[in-house]
């Protein structure tokens, strides 16, 4: 497989791999969420991504925008928790930004992910350090952009993005949550890694697994 761009089939493989990873890590996500949330993040993400894989298998999309829009809407209607509108918005905005193409280069995929993140911010009003998915995705995309400016292809950009996402995820541990259910805990939310930042890191892990294989 080519790694300089990502094809429609690879986007589908990426989503499928993300489903596999959240399934694999379901109990870990649940464990993180039971510490500071309502212990449903693992189950919600698995249910949502199972619905996504089923949907895009049943109604194959012919362009990136249609595919990503379908993913977003499926998450909105199947997740139930706050991850539904947040991940749903991420994919819907990615789709709008990507447009009706069948292939994305590193810059285009980075721009689509950036648009998705901006949607998440608009939806959830999260800022850096609020102990949310933003804290994994934002540094990942910053690293992505730097790599692309240096001429990186999708595989290389995804690799540095994953490293940055994981670093951002681990850095949520000492933070006091300021958004969502965890924020009700105040200071007691410190000392736990954020489950949303963790599932977002898996999104980059899935991308690396897909474009590097």
């Amino acid at each position: 497989m080519s790694t300089s761009t990502i094809s429609l089939d690879q986007l589908i493989a990426w989503l499928s791999r993300f489903r596999d990873l959240v399934t694999e890590k379901q109990s870990y996500l649940t464990e993180l969420d039971s510490a500071i949330g309502d212990a449903d993040h693992g189950a919600n993400m698995v249910r949502g991504m199972n619905a996504v894989v089923e949907k895009i298998g049943a109604e194959p999309a012919t362009a990136a925008d249609a595919l990503l829009k379908s993913v977003g809407m499926t998450l909105v209607t199947s997740v139930g928790g706050a991850s539904g509108p947040l991940y749903g918005t991420l994919f819907l905005r990615m789709g709008v930004n990507a447009g009706p193409v069948t292939e994305l280069d590193a810059a285009a995929l980075g721009a689509a992910l950036r648009a998705g993140l901006e949607g998440v911010v608009a939806r959830g009003k999260a800022e850096a350090g609020d102990k949310t998915m933003f804290d994994a995705i934002a540094p990942a995309l910053d690293a992505w952009d730097v790599a692309v400016a240096d001429g990186a292809d999708v595989a290389a950009a995804a690799s540095v993005a994953l490293t940055a996402a994981d670093k951002g995820r681990l850095a949520t541990e000492p933070l006091v949550a300021r958004k969502g259910r965890a924020s009700y805990l105040g200071e007691r939310s410190a000392g736990h890694i954020d489950p949303g930042a963790t599932s977002s890191t898996l999104l980059f892990q899935a991308l690396v697994d897909t474009v590097s294989s």
Binding site: N44, R47, A51, M73, V76, T77, S78, V79, G80, G81, G84, P85, G88
Partner: peptide
């Protein structure tokens, strides 16, 4: 109210 099949949650489409 609720999401999907008897799931406790919310659904923007609903």
């Amino acid at each position: 109210a609720g999401a999907g099949d008897g799931i406790i949650g919310t659904d923007a489409v609903k």
